[in-house]
């Protein structure tokens, strides 16, 4: 059974697209057929982060409108075998997404892929609802700051009321929390919310904590999903997230304590 996973947050700039790219790549690295869809119609970014922006000919909206077939729009990743990207249209807006159209495309993708990752646009409007509507599971991306946490809370409420599973009274969407751009040092200084603060407010199972890292920006700009960077601590953290998502129990990576940092480890 293939699964539809929405990567969502409410707030913009917290790392939805980075996570979608890294998570999909992490799954595909294990040989699992995975596709990642950009739902951010009009502000497409996923193709940039995945480094395939120059190969986009047909897009998601073309397929919805029947202006091309799925095979023409799916872009096969050159680095990871079982990974495909379905880019958004840059020239349309979110209204081009219809429930019927999205259902049609997802139905077709389900036949080929085990995991369908939906990269949601920010906000709680039409685009975000289209991205979450058919989801079986959800990754809630949150930064350790109050506004992000509150927006995530709002999105979790919508997952429980505006999705197909909620509307049709099926088992609810399974939700996971992913804390990104986390800096232990800034938490110690009191600039950021701690993991405990965030889990206390959101009360969701924590799938992983991605440290704030310069390598993420670099990877985005160079069009490489961060999970392909073996040197990056954020990339490693994303691989752990994938492992936990698949039901494995990777050991918690040793964080440098304040003491060891003081004495220069």
């Amino acid at each position: 059974m293939s699964k539809i996973i929405v990567v969502t947050s409410g707030k913009g700039g917290v790392g939805k697209t980075t996570t979608s790219a890294a998570f999909a790549t992490g799954l595909a690295l294990r040989g699992i057929p995975t596709v990642v869809i950009d739902f951010d119609v009009g502000l497409r970014n996923l193709d940039l982060v995945m480094g395939c922006e120059r190969r986009v000919v047909y897009d998601f909206i073309n397929i919805i409108n029947g202006e091309g077939n799925l095979n023409q729009a799916l872009i096969k990743d050159r680095r990871v075998d079982s990974l495909y990207i379905l880019p958004a249209s840059q020239t349309r807006n979110k209204d081009a997404l219809t429930l019927k159209g999205v259902a049609k495309v997802l139905e077709a993708l389900k036949k080929r892929f085990e995991y369908i990752i939906c990269d949601s646009p920010a906000g709680i409007e039409h685009g975000a609802i289209m991205a979450m509507y058919f989801a079986d599971e959800a990754l809630i991306i949150t930064n350790p700051e109050v506004s992000s946490v509150r927006d995530s809370d709002r999105i979790v409420g919508m997952l429980a009321s505006k999705t197909r599973r909620a509307v049709q009274d099926m088992a609810p969407v399974k939700e996971y929390l992913l804390l990104t751009r986390y800096s232990a040092k800034r938490v110690e200084n009191g600039d950021m919310l701690s993991v405990d603060d965030v889990t206390d407010i959101l009360a969701l199972p924590m799938l992983g904590i991605i440290p704030e890292s310069e390598s993420v920006l670099h990877a985005s700009n160079s069009g490489t999903p961060i999970t392909l960077d073996n040197e990056s601590d954020a990339g490693m953290a994303y691989l752990d997230v994938v492992a936990r998502f698949l039901g494995e129990d990777p050991p918690v990576r040793k964080k440098k304590s304040l003491f060891s940092r003081l004495i220069g480890r």
């Binding site: 509150r150 809370d153 919508m158 429980a160 407010i201 009360a203």
Partner: peptide, 27 residues
């Protein structure tokens, strides 16, 4: 019995309301 999330609104007409979970900011 479920948490009441930001943006959600729960109304109990002509009765008491008992919430077992959290009532979040903005709820």
């Amino acid at each position: 019995t479920h948490p009441i999330r930001s943006g959600q609104r729960v109304v109990a007409l002509n009765s008491d309301l008992i919430v077992l979970g959290t009532v979040s900011h903005g709820a």
